[in-house]
Amino acid sequence: MIFEIRHRTTYHYNAAVTESFAELHVLPTDLDGQKVLERSVVIEPDPDHVRQRVDYFGNAAVSVAIREPHTTLSLEAASVVDSSGRPTEFPAGSGDGWEGFTADANPADLAAVEFSLDSPRVVRSAELAAFAEPSFPAGASLEVGVMDLCGRIFNEFAFDPDATEVDTPVSEVLALRRGVCQDFTHLMVGALRSIGLPACYVSGYLETDPPPGQPRLTGADRTHAWVGVYLGGDRWIGVDPTNNQIAGRRYVTTARGRDYSEVSPLRGVIFSDSTRTSLEVAVDVIARDQGVIGVS
């Protein structure tokens, strides 16, 4: 499938901002089997400095510096992505015992080790390991274990945008049994890592319009987040605990990192007397030749 994606972020300040610096993760890149056909970002006011680079995790990062005084900042990222190459099922071999995919079993695979360690927002714990364990009896296949854990989060946790904040710790989500896609993703990443399995945080988009007669998928109002499970040899499979499914061809990956802190769409510093900031985010995911199917 080919998607046209528009992601517009607008900040309004109640006093002039004299300088603004930001790092953006809003442009999809060729990850997870998808192909980016076009991408661009338009920033107003005109930046003093813009540079795009590939960050450590292989994502497109855009650095921006604005030195023109402004009360409104708008950033619009547009891209065209072909998602047809995204994996829709676990590859052959993932039926093997999950223990073979742990960092301990693959000490020479640096990605396996790196993505199984703590990260700024996801810290392994005995509680998280205990939460994961019922899904991973000895010898169970990786696929069965991961999908079982994914299903348990989907079934046992309530989607509730009012229950958590952007920085609610994973331990609290585990106790609350509610949250949003970011919380469920952190929870699942933490649970997998706590039993030694490497996993990453993926941010991106999900086509949201429900097919006729099926329920609307939750959590896709803005950007979305899901889990990347590492399979070794630089292969990943996306799993979405918010919707209990593989992150297949209706998904587009923007960035992948150890947790949200490394892939947040926009991270910035402003110099201003402004005391109030309002934020508008608008995301359109449009399947080509099929009209507008997802607007939020």
Binding site: F21, H49, R53, S63, A65, V269
Partner: peptide
């Protein structure tokens, strides 16, 4: 702010 970007 932005020092690392200049460095990079």
């Amino acid at each position: 702010a932005g020092l690392m970007e200049v460095y990079r």
